[in-house]
Amino acid sequence: MKIFKLLTCFFSLLVNVSFSQPTKTILFVGTYTNDKPDSGIYIYEFNASTGNLTPVSHGSNITNPSFLTISPNGNYIYACTDTKMPDAGSVSAFRFDSISGSLTFLNKQPSGGENPVYVTTSKNNEFVINANYTTGSVSAFSTNADGSLNPFSQLIPFKGSSINTRRQEKAHIHATVFSPDFKYLFFPDLGSDKIHVFEFDPTKKQPLKASEKLDFVAIPGSGPRHFTFHPTKPIAYCIEELSGMVSAFQVENGKLDSIQRIFSYSKLQEDYNSADIHISPDGLFLYASNRWEHENTLSIFSIDQGSGILTLVGHQSTLGDNPRNFVIDPTGNFLIVANQASNNLIVFKRDLKTGLLTKTQTEITVRNPSCLQMRIYGQ
């Protein structure tokens, strides 16, 4: 009987090993396609030991998939599509097969506004939340069992302006970011210098509820853009596009309390064009991308693990033009930056102790890269 049980366990182990999917890390790249249908989304396998990128597949007949997000289970990709096109804007759904590497279009829905720039998903993929930059609105889409999108069930327009008459003539929502507990959504509004806070209830057809008492009013002319949470602490950070600053907040039940603003650029300029912001998986370092002529850097900050206060460690050239977006791989060992104007992706090795970056030998040419997302499959 004991021999039979041992043989059964051994056979079961062989079956599981034979049919389990090898672990792989996948990089998804969203791009601008010059307003014409094209491949749009590019998929690479990332070597987490060397930093090398190997082409896997790409999309087809996609127009300006400028921002991507991955569903919680990794099976679906949602993209802002038809961006920066007059009187047009959509959100598209794709199925991703992690074994074959294929990307299959499911459907797309009107975004409810012009120039969708940011999408995110709820905890169990019940809803996809989209930001329309030019028309200053947020739309919520419920999903179907196959990952496809229903028409938006909620469309929330915003009003407001601020002191920069060229860039802040009206509301411009630039991100839709869930709190770690998925009870709140934060909408940085570059146009009105606010971070709007909404309560979220996935059981309702219209899941977003305004909570104006929680809205944060930023410094005039700052232009809040992207927003991120610390992986383990009740602290959040916002990159301000127009001021070149990073703001830090204590967060409790959706309420933001400012604790710091720190300059992100390497030198003073007349104008600023900050873009993206991310924290290393261990929570020790924060990175921000700084665009503009003679800048194009990543700023590197250490994070005080008690207070959340940032201290500048240094700056790293992105070795390209217009670092619109970047991503830190799940191991934390590498950082990849997308230089939109110079059409290249640069892979940097991270020093886990200092946070500093060193260029690897990996550089990939991609036309107009604007968004990077990564995920490990097969775990």
Rank of each mutant, 00 (worst) to 15 (best):
F326T: 07
S161Y: 02
L53A: 11
I195R: 04
I3M: 14
V15Q: 07
G223V: 02
V251P: 10
F285I: 12
F186Y: 15
L372I: 04
I364L: 01
D215H: 14
I336S: 03
P224W: 03
A341G: 03
N130C: 15
S299G: 14
N333M: 02
S280A: 14
G223M: 04
S264V: 05
S243C: 09
R166F: 03
C238F: 00
A79K: 08
T203I: 05
G30Q: 06
S20I: 13
V56S: 11
Y78K: 13
F67T: 00
G51R: 00
T33W: 00
C371F: 01
F200W: 08
E270R: 08
A341I: 02
E240A: 06
G136T: 02
S192W: 05
L103D: 06
Y237Q: 04
M85K: 14
A131D: 02
N125Y: 12
T135H: 05
A341E: 12
S153T: 15
T228F: 03
T203R: 12
N325G: 04
R367G: 03
N296S: 10
Y287S: 01
S49D: 08
S342I: 01
I300L: 13
S71W: 07
R375T: 01
Q269C: 12
L14K: 13
A145V: 12
L103G: 06
D329K: 08
L345Y: 05
L214P: 12
I346L: 07
E240D: 14
G40A: 09
F186K: 10
E363C: 03
Y377Q: 07
L256G: 12
L372C: 04
D189G: 06
P22R: 08
L53N: 03
G113C: 07
R261E: 09
F127M: 14
W292T: 12
N115L: 00
K349C: 06
I3A: 15
Y78C: 10
Y287M: 05
S307E: 03
T297F: 00
L53F: 00
S264T: 10
T121H: 04
A93E: 10
N73A: 09
A48C: 06
I336D: 09
I303Y: 02
L242I: 06
C80D: 09
P369H: 03
S370W: 00
A171C: 09
I62C: 04
Q250G: 05
A210L: 14
L345H: 11
D321Q: 10
F187A: 11
F186D: 11
S18D: 03
F187L: 15
L335K: 03
F158Y: 15
Q269I: 04
M245P: 00
L214V: 14
L345F: 08
V337I: 07
D215A: 13
Q206N: 11
L27V: 11
S102I: 00
N130S: 15
P202H: 11
S122N: 09
Q168A: 06
C371W: 00
T318M: 07
T83I: 00
L149T: 10
